[in-house]
Design a protein around this nucleic acid. Structure first.
Length: 420
DNA sequence: TCTGGGGTCCTAGGACCC
DNA sequence: TCTGGGGTCCTAGGACCC
Protein backbone atom coordinates (compact mmCIF):
# COMPACT_ATOMS: atom_id res chain seq x y z
CA UNK A 1 0.00 0.00 0.00
CA UNK A 2 1.42 3.39 -0.97
CA UNK A 3 2.18 6.01 1.62
CA UNK A 4 -0.31 8.84 2.00
CA UNK A 5 0.52 12.01 3.87
CA UNK A 6 -1.80 14.79 4.86
CA UNK A 7 -0.45 18.19 5.74
CA UNK A 8 -2.77 19.95 8.16
CA UNK A 9 -2.26 23.69 8.38
CA UNK A 10 -4.19 26.04 10.64
CA UNK A 11 -5.66 28.84 8.55
CA UNK A 12 -4.07 32.21 9.38
CA UNK A 13 -3.22 30.69 12.73
CA UNK A 14 -2.40 33.70 14.93
CA UNK A 15 -5.31 35.69 13.53
CA UNK A 16 -7.63 32.73 14.14
CA UNK A 17 -6.38 32.48 17.75
CA UNK A 18 -7.28 36.11 18.33
CA UNK A 19 -10.78 35.39 17.05
CA UNK A 20 -11.54 32.51 19.38
CA UNK A 21 -12.09 34.73 22.39
CA UNK A 22 -13.21 37.76 20.46
CA UNK A 23 -16.00 36.75 18.09
CA UNK A 24 -16.59 40.36 17.09
CA UNK A 25 -13.51 39.97 14.95
CA UNK A 26 -14.93 37.34 12.62
CA UNK A 27 -15.02 38.49 9.00
CA UNK A 28 -13.02 41.58 9.95
CA UNK A 29 -9.41 42.23 8.89
CA UNK A 30 -6.79 41.36 11.52
CA UNK A 31 -3.00 41.48 11.57
CA UNK A 32 -0.57 40.20 14.19
CA UNK A 33 2.83 41.80 14.74
CA UNK A 34 6.20 40.23 15.50
CA UNK A 35 8.06 40.79 18.74
CA UNK A 36 8.63 44.43 19.51
CA UNK A 37 5.69 45.20 17.21
CA UNK A 38 8.22 45.17 14.38
CA UNK A 39 6.72 43.44 11.35
CA UNK A 40 3.44 41.94 10.25
CA UNK A 41 3.70 38.16 10.65
CA UNK A 42 0.09 37.04 10.30
CA UNK A 43 -2.95 38.30 8.43
CA UNK A 44 -6.55 37.21 8.24
CA UNK A 45 -7.97 36.61 4.75
CA UNK A 46 -9.68 40.00 4.90
CA UNK A 47 -6.35 41.69 5.60
CA UNK A 48 -4.68 39.77 2.77
CA UNK A 49 -7.37 41.02 0.39
CA UNK A 50 -6.56 44.59 1.37
CA UNK A 51 -3.10 44.00 -0.04
CA UNK A 52 -1.27 44.18 3.27
CA UNK A 53 2.02 42.38 2.64
CA UNK A 54 3.50 39.65 4.83
CA UNK A 55 6.61 40.69 6.72
CA UNK A 56 6.13 44.40 6.11
CA UNK A 57 7.47 46.72 8.83
CA UNK A 58 4.57 47.91 10.96
CA UNK A 59 5.49 51.58 10.82
CA UNK A 60 5.39 51.49 7.02
CA UNK A 61 1.88 50.05 6.87
CA UNK A 62 0.34 51.87 9.79
CA UNK A 63 -1.47 54.29 7.52
CA UNK A 64 -2.99 51.53 5.40
CA UNK A 65 -4.07 49.63 8.52
CA UNK A 66 -5.76 52.64 10.08
CA UNK A 67 -7.49 53.62 6.89
CA UNK A 68 -9.03 50.16 6.58
CA UNK A 69 -9.82 49.82 10.30
CA UNK A 70 -7.68 46.71 10.62
CA UNK A 71 -7.44 45.27 14.14
CA UNK A 72 -3.77 45.09 15.12
CA UNK A 73 -2.37 42.73 17.78
CA UNK A 74 1.04 42.28 19.33
CA UNK A 75 2.21 38.66 19.43
CA UNK A 76 0.70 36.65 22.26
CA UNK A 77 2.83 33.53 22.17
CA UNK A 78 1.50 32.13 25.42
CA UNK A 79 -1.97 32.06 23.88
CA UNK A 80 -0.84 30.74 20.47
CA UNK A 81 1.36 28.05 22.03
CA UNK A 82 -1.48 26.81 24.21
CA UNK A 83 -4.02 26.72 21.35
CA UNK A 84 -1.43 24.94 19.20
CA UNK A 85 -1.04 22.20 21.84
CA UNK A 86 -4.82 21.72 21.84
CA UNK A 87 -5.00 21.47 18.06
CA UNK A 88 -2.13 18.96 17.95
CA UNK A 89 -3.59 16.78 20.65
CA UNK A 90 -6.95 16.79 18.83
CA UNK A 91 -5.19 15.62 15.65
CA UNK A 92 -3.36 12.87 17.48
CA UNK A 93 -6.65 11.45 18.69
CA UNK A 94 -7.48 10.62 15.06
CA UNK A 95 -4.03 9.79 13.76
CA UNK A 96 -1.27 8.90 16.21
CA UNK A 97 1.27 8.62 13.36
CA UNK A 98 1.88 12.32 13.13
CA UNK A 99 4.66 14.87 13.14
CA UNK A 100 4.19 18.30 14.65
CA UNK A 101 6.05 20.33 12.06
CA UNK A 102 5.58 23.86 13.39
CA UNK A 103 3.32 25.81 15.70
CA UNK A 104 0.49 25.60 13.15
CA UNK A 105 1.27 22.60 10.95
CA UNK A 106 1.35 18.83 11.27
CA UNK A 107 1.92 15.92 8.89
CA UNK A 108 -0.36 12.90 9.34
CA UNK A 109 0.05 9.40 7.88
CA UNK A 110 -3.41 8.66 6.52
CA UNK A 111 -2.65 5.40 4.70
CA UNK A 112 -2.51 3.41 7.92
CA UNK A 113 -6.06 4.31 8.59
CA UNK A 114 -8.59 1.61 8.25
CA UNK A 115 -8.85 1.78 4.47
CA UNK A 116 -10.87 4.93 4.80
CA UNK A 117 -11.06 7.40 1.98
CA UNK A 118 -8.43 10.03 2.86
CA UNK A 119 -10.60 12.99 1.94
CA UNK A 120 -13.50 11.90 4.07
CA UNK A 121 -11.19 11.16 7.00
CA UNK A 122 -9.66 14.62 6.56
CA UNK A 123 -13.12 16.11 6.51
CA UNK A 124 -14.00 14.45 9.85
CA UNK A 125 -10.77 15.69 11.39
CA UNK A 126 -11.32 19.21 10.10
CA UNK A 127 -14.81 19.38 11.58
CA UNK A 128 -13.79 18.07 15.00
CA UNK A 129 -10.74 20.34 15.30
CA UNK A 130 -12.92 23.33 14.54
CA UNK A 131 -15.49 22.23 17.09
CA UNK A 132 -12.99 21.41 19.84
CA UNK A 133 -10.59 24.31 19.42
CA UNK A 134 -12.27 26.93 17.24
CA UNK A 135 -9.43 26.78 14.70
CA UNK A 136 -10.17 26.27 10.98
CA UNK A 137 -7.69 24.05 9.11
CA UNK A 138 -6.64 23.18 5.55
CA UNK A 139 -5.69 19.63 4.51
CA UNK A 140 -3.45 18.63 1.61
CA UNK A 141 -3.30 14.92 0.77
CA UNK A 142 -0.52 13.34 -1.33
CA UNK A 143 2.01 10.48 -1.52
CA UNK A 144 4.97 12.61 -0.34
CA UNK A 145 5.43 15.45 2.09
CA UNK A 146 6.53 17.83 -0.66
CA UNK A 147 3.40 17.09 -2.71
CA UNK A 148 1.24 17.34 0.42
CA UNK A 149 2.59 20.87 0.82
CA UNK A 150 1.52 21.62 -2.74
CA UNK A 151 -1.91 20.09 -2.12
CA UNK A 152 -2.30 22.17 1.02
CA UNK A 153 -1.62 25.35 -0.91
CA UNK A 154 -4.43 24.50 -3.29
CA UNK A 155 -6.75 23.48 -0.44
CA UNK A 156 -6.24 26.85 1.17
CA UNK A 157 -7.17 28.68 -2.01
CA UNK A 158 -10.46 26.85 -2.36
CA UNK A 159 -13.33 28.73 -0.83
CA UNK A 160 -15.49 25.75 0.03
CA UNK A 161 -13.80 22.82 1.75
CA UNK A 162 -10.10 23.56 2.28
CA UNK A 163 -9.30 19.91 1.53
CA UNK A 164 -7.44 18.80 -1.60
CA UNK A 165 -6.45 15.29 -2.69
CA UNK A 166 -3.35 15.16 -4.90
CA UNK A 167 -2.75 11.41 -4.93
CA UNK A 168 -3.54 11.00 -8.63
CA UNK A 169 -0.48 11.20 -10.90
CA UNK A 170 -2.21 12.95 -13.81
CA UNK A 171 -3.59 15.59 -11.46
CA UNK A 172 -0.09 16.09 -10.10
CA UNK A 173 1.23 16.64 -13.61
CA UNK A 174 -1.40 19.28 -14.36
CA UNK A 175 -0.94 21.08 -11.06
CA UNK A 176 2.87 21.04 -11.12
CA UNK A 177 2.90 22.50 -14.65
CA UNK A 178 1.26 25.62 -13.26
CA UNK A 179 3.32 25.82 -10.07
CA UNK A 180 6.29 28.22 -10.10
CA UNK A 181 9.40 26.60 -8.60
CA UNK A 182 9.69 29.18 -5.85
CA UNK A 183 6.37 27.89 -4.49
CA UNK A 184 7.85 24.46 -3.81
CA UNK A 185 8.67 23.57 -0.21
CA UNK A 186 12.45 23.81 0.19
CA UNK A 187 13.09 26.16 -2.72
CA UNK A 188 13.55 29.75 -1.77
CA UNK A 189 14.72 32.80 -3.70
CA UNK A 190 18.41 31.79 -3.94
CA UNK A 191 17.78 28.37 -5.39
CA UNK A 192 14.89 29.52 -7.54
CA UNK A 193 17.21 32.05 -9.21
CA UNK A 194 19.73 29.29 -9.91
CA UNK A 195 17.02 27.09 -11.41
CA UNK A 196 15.67 29.91 -13.56
CA UNK A 197 19.18 30.42 -14.89
CA UNK A 198 19.33 26.83 -16.10
CA UNK A 199 15.88 27.10 -17.64
CA UNK A 200 13.74 25.41 -15.00
CA UNK A 201 10.76 27.59 -14.21
CA UNK A 202 7.96 25.37 -12.97
CA UNK A 203 7.60 22.35 -10.73
CA UNK A 204 6.85 19.98 -13.60
CA UNK A 205 10.12 20.87 -15.33
CA UNK A 206 11.96 20.25 -12.07
CA UNK A 207 10.23 16.88 -11.65
CA UNK A 208 11.36 15.82 -15.13
CA UNK A 209 15.00 16.85 -14.62
CA UNK A 210 17.74 14.31 -13.88
CA UNK A 211 18.07 14.19 -10.06
CA UNK A 212 21.86 13.90 -10.13
CA UNK A 213 22.07 17.02 -12.30
CA UNK A 214 20.02 18.89 -9.69
CA UNK A 215 22.24 17.47 -6.97
CA UNK A 216 25.25 19.13 -8.58
CA UNK A 217 23.52 22.48 -8.36
CA UNK A 218 21.48 22.23 -5.17
CA UNK A 219 23.08 19.48 -3.05
CA UNK A 220 21.29 16.36 -1.89
CA UNK A 221 18.44 18.45 -0.55
CA UNK A 222 17.56 19.55 -4.08
CA UNK A 223 17.87 16.01 -5.36
CA UNK A 224 15.45 14.81 -2.72
CA UNK A 225 12.91 17.40 -3.83
CA UNK A 226 12.96 16.00 -7.39
CA UNK A 227 12.18 12.49 -6.13
CA UNK A 228 9.46 13.80 -3.85
CA UNK A 229 7.83 15.60 -6.78
CA UNK A 230 7.87 12.27 -8.64
CA UNK A 231 5.82 10.75 -5.83
CA UNK A 232 8.72 8.82 -4.32
CA UNK A 233 8.70 9.53 -0.62
CA UNK A 234 12.18 10.39 0.73
CA UNK A 235 11.22 12.46 3.75
CA UNK A 236 9.47 10.44 6.44
CA UNK A 237 7.71 11.53 9.60
CA UNK A 238 10.13 12.90 12.15
CA UNK A 239 9.66 12.11 15.77
CA UNK A 240 9.80 15.03 18.16
CA UNK A 241 13.47 15.19 18.98
CA UNK A 242 15.01 17.24 21.73
CA UNK A 243 16.58 20.41 20.35
CA UNK A 244 20.29 20.32 19.61
CA UNK A 245 20.71 24.03 20.27
CA UNK A 246 18.54 26.51 22.10
CA UNK A 247 18.52 30.17 21.16
CA UNK A 248 17.10 33.07 23.08
CA UNK A 249 17.52 36.50 21.58
CA UNK A 250 15.46 39.60 21.14
CA UNK A 251 15.76 43.13 19.95
CA UNK A 252 15.71 45.61 22.80
CA UNK A 253 12.71 47.92 23.08
CA UNK A 254 15.11 50.79 22.35
CA UNK A 255 18.76 51.16 21.40
CA UNK A 256 21.17 50.63 24.29
CA UNK A 257 24.74 51.84 24.78
CA UNK A 258 25.62 50.80 28.33
CA UNK A 259 27.14 47.45 29.21
CA UNK A 260 25.09 47.13 32.38
CA UNK A 261 21.80 47.36 30.54
CA UNK A 262 22.83 44.79 27.96
CA UNK A 263 24.01 42.52 30.75
CA UNK A 264 20.60 42.74 32.34
CA UNK A 265 18.82 41.84 29.10
CA UNK A 266 21.27 39.03 28.38
CA UNK A 267 20.76 37.59 31.87
CA UNK A 268 17.04 37.46 31.17
CA UNK A 269 17.47 35.78 27.79
CA UNK A 270 19.89 33.31 29.38
CA UNK A 271 17.36 32.55 32.10
CA UNK A 272 14.69 31.86 29.45
CA UNK A 273 17.07 29.62 27.52
CA UNK A 274 17.86 27.65 30.69
CA UNK A 275 14.17 27.13 31.35
CA UNK A 276 13.74 25.69 27.87
CA UNK A 277 16.84 23.57 28.42
CA UNK A 278 15.56 22.03 31.65
CA UNK A 279 12.12 21.58 30.11
CA UNK A 280 13.54 19.14 27.61
CA UNK A 281 15.72 17.53 30.27
CA UNK A 282 19.02 18.51 28.67
CA UNK A 283 22.29 20.09 29.68
CA UNK A 284 24.47 22.36 27.59
CA UNK A 285 28.17 21.85 26.93
CA UNK A 286 28.80 25.26 25.47
CA UNK A 287 27.52 28.81 25.19
CA UNK A 288 27.48 31.29 22.33
CA UNK A 289 26.75 34.98 22.90
CA UNK A 290 26.34 37.73 20.31
CA UNK A 291 25.57 41.46 20.18
CA UNK A 292 24.81 43.69 17.24
CA UNK A 293 23.85 47.21 16.27
CA UNK A 294 20.85 48.08 14.09
CA UNK A 295 21.87 47.37 10.49
CA UNK A 296 19.06 49.50 9.11
CA UNK A 297 20.51 52.66 10.63
CA UNK A 298 23.08 53.22 7.94
CA UNK A 299 24.39 56.43 9.51
CA UNK A 300 25.22 54.82 12.85
CA UNK A 301 28.56 53.07 13.23
CA UNK A 302 27.99 49.36 12.87
CA UNK A 303 29.36 46.58 15.04
CA UNK A 304 28.61 42.93 15.56
CA UNK A 305 30.53 40.30 17.37
CA UNK A 306 30.15 36.96 19.06
CA UNK A 307 32.03 34.63 21.37
CA UNK A 308 31.82 30.98 22.29
CA UNK A 309 32.90 29.14 25.41
CA UNK A 310 32.81 25.57 26.55
CA UNK A 311 31.41 24.97 30.03
CA UNK A 312 33.60 23.08 32.54
CA UNK A 313 30.94 20.35 32.56
CA UNK A 314 27.50 19.91 30.91
CA UNK A 315 25.11 22.06 32.91
CA UNK A 316 21.59 23.40 33.15
CA UNK A 317 22.35 25.61 36.15
CA UNK A 318 21.01 29.11 35.50
CA UNK A 319 23.56 30.82 37.71
CA UNK A 320 26.55 29.22 35.97
CA UNK A 321 25.13 29.90 32.52
CA UNK A 322 24.22 33.51 33.29
CA UNK A 323 27.68 34.09 34.77
CA UNK A 324 29.44 32.59 31.76
CA UNK A 325 27.25 34.54 29.35
CA UNK A 326 28.18 37.80 31.07
CA UNK A 327 31.88 36.97 30.84
CA UNK A 328 31.52 36.40 27.11
CA UNK A 329 29.57 39.63 26.73
CA UNK A 330 32.39 41.59 28.34
CA UNK A 331 34.82 40.10 25.84
CA UNK A 332 32.86 41.38 22.86
CA UNK A 333 31.27 44.59 24.17
CA UNK A 334 32.77 47.80 22.83
CA UNK A 335 31.90 51.27 23.96
CA UNK A 336 30.51 53.84 21.58
CA UNK A 337 27.89 51.81 19.74
CA UNK A 338 24.12 51.81 19.93
CA UNK A 339 23.16 48.21 20.40
CA UNK A 340 19.89 46.85 19.08
CA UNK A 341 19.99 43.18 19.96
CA UNK A 342 21.80 40.48 21.85
CA UNK A 343 21.30 36.78 22.26
CA UNK A 344 22.54 33.55 23.72
CA UNK A 345 22.66 30.09 22.23
CA UNK A 346 23.11 26.98 24.33
CA UNK A 347 25.21 24.55 22.31
CA UNK A 348 25.89 20.83 22.12
CA UNK A 349 22.96 19.77 24.25
CA UNK A 350 23.02 16.37 25.89
CA UNK A 351 20.39 14.37 27.71
CA UNK A 352 20.64 14.93 31.47
CA UNK A 353 20.19 11.23 32.12
CA UNK A 354 23.10 10.12 29.95
CA UNK A 355 25.93 12.34 31.01
CA UNK A 356 29.28 10.75 31.46
CA UNK A 357 31.53 12.74 33.64
CA UNK A 358 35.02 13.13 32.35
CA UNK A 359 37.48 11.61 34.79
CA UNK A 360 39.61 14.71 34.83
CA UNK A 361 36.82 17.23 35.19
CA UNK A 362 35.29 18.59 38.30
CA UNK A 363 32.16 16.84 39.48
CA UNK A 364 29.30 19.24 38.78
CA UNK A 365 27.60 20.60 41.89
CA UNK A 366 24.18 18.98 41.95
CA UNK A 367 22.70 21.39 44.48
CA UNK A 368 22.70 24.29 42.05
CA UNK A 369 21.01 22.26 39.35
CA UNK A 370 18.41 21.30 41.89
CA UNK A 371 17.89 24.93 42.88
CA UNK A 372 17.29 25.84 39.24
CA UNK A 373 14.60 23.22 38.88
CA UNK A 374 12.91 24.39 42.10
CA UNK A 375 12.78 27.91 40.67
CA UNK A 376 11.12 26.54 37.54
CA UNK A 377 8.49 24.75 39.58
CA UNK A 378 7.65 27.84 41.61
CA UNK A 379 7.49 30.05 38.54
CA UNK A 380 5.26 27.58 36.76
CA UNK A 381 2.75 27.45 39.57
CA UNK A 382 2.60 31.14 40.37
CA UNK A 383 2.96 32.89 37.04
CA UNK A 384 6.02 33.37 35.01
CA UNK A 385 8.55 35.46 36.91
CA UNK A 386 7.93 35.23 40.62
CA UNK A 387 11.55 34.31 41.29
CA UNK A 388 14.50 35.51 39.28
CA UNK A 389 18.20 36.17 39.64
CA UNK A 390 19.39 39.57 40.81
CA UNK A 391 21.44 39.93 37.63
CA UNK A 392 18.22 39.93 35.64
CA UNK A 393 17.64 43.36 37.14
CA UNK A 394 14.47 45.26 37.83
CA UNK A 395 14.86 48.27 35.58
CA UNK A 396 14.03 46.36 32.44
CA UNK A 397 14.57 49.41 30.28
CA UNK A 398 15.37 47.06 27.38
CA UNK A 399 11.99 45.32 27.54
CA UNK A 400 10.31 44.84 24.23
CA UNK A 401 7.26 46.70 23.13
CA UNK A 402 3.99 44.84 22.89
CA UNK A 403 1.34 47.43 23.51
CA UNK A 404 -1.41 45.67 21.63
CA UNK A 405 -1.32 42.24 23.16
CA UNK A 406 -4.60 40.44 23.79
CA UNK A 407 -5.21 38.64 27.04
CA UNK A 408 -3.50 35.34 27.75
CA UNK A 409 -6.94 33.76 28.11
CA UNK A 410 -5.87 30.19 28.58
CA UNK A 411 -2.62 30.36 30.56
CA UNK A 412 -3.02 33.16 33.12
CA UNK A 413 -5.66 33.04 35.84
CA UNK A 414 -5.93 36.80 35.93
CA UNK A 415 -6.67 36.99 32.24
CA UNK A 416 -9.48 34.48 31.92
CA UNK A 417 -12.44 35.34 29.74
CA UNK A 418 -15.15 37.08 31.75
CA UNK A 419 -18.73 35.96 31.18
CA UNK A 420 -21.46 38.32 32.26
C1' DT B 1 11.09 56.56 16.51
C1' DC B 2 9.81 51.95 14.55
C1' DT B 3 12.57 46.64 10.26
C1' DG B 4 11.06 39.14 14.43
C1' DG B 5 12.65 34.95 16.72
C1' DG B 6 13.93 30.22 16.65
C1' DG B 7 15.45 26.42 14.40
C1' DT B 8 17.86 22.43 11.04
C1' DC B 9 20.88 20.54 7.64
C1' DC B 10 24.71 20.47 4.32
C1' DT B 11 29.18 21.71 2.40
C1' DA B 12 33.67 23.65 1.86
C1' DG B 13 37.81 24.15 3.64
C1' DG B 14 41.27 24.33 7.29
C1' DA B 15 43.84 21.76 10.87
C1' DC B 16 45.85 17.84 11.96
C1' DC B 17 47.57 13.09 11.61
C1' DC B 18 50.27 9.25 9.65
C1' DT C 1 58.07 22.83 -13.83
C1' DC C 2 58.16 20.00 -9.92
C1' DT C 3 57.31 21.03 -3.52
C1' DG C 4 53.26 13.88 -0.88
C1' DG C 5 48.79 12.00 -0.47
C1' DG C 6 44.97 10.64 1.78
C1' DG C 7 42.08 10.40 5.62
C1' DT C 8 39.24 12.41 9.59
C1' DC C 9 37.41 15.84 12.36
C1' DC C 10 35.77 20.35 13.27
C1' DT C 11 33.86 24.86 12.29
C1' DA C 12 31.96 28.70 9.82
C1' DG C 13 28.83 30.01 6.83
C1' DG C 14 25.16 29.49 3.70
C1' DA C 15 21.00 27.55 2.42
C1' DC C 16 16.38 26.47 3.85
C1' DC C 17 11.96 26.29 7.07
C1' DC C 18 7.88 28.44 9.96
Amino acid sequence: MPVIFSLVDCNNFYASCERIFNPNLSNKPIVVLSNNDGCIIARSNEAKKLGIPMGAPYHQTEYLLKKNKVSVFSSNYQLYGDISRRVMSSLSMFVPEMEVYSIDEAFLRLDKHYGRDPSSLASDIQLKVLKWTGIPTSHGIAPTKTLAKVANKIAKRSNSKNIFDLTNFDTQTKILARLPIEDIWGISSGWSKKLHNIGIKNALQLRETDPSFIRNHLSVIGERIVYELRGISCIGLDKIMPKKNILSSKSFGKLITELEEIEEALANYAFRACQKLRNQNSKARGIYVFIKTNKYRMNDPQYRNSATKELPYPSSDSSLIIKTAKLLLREIYQQGFKYQKCGIMLLDLVDSDYIQNNLFEKIPPRKKEYLSSIIDTINQSTGNESIFYASQGIKRSWKMRCSKRSQRYTTQWKELVKAY
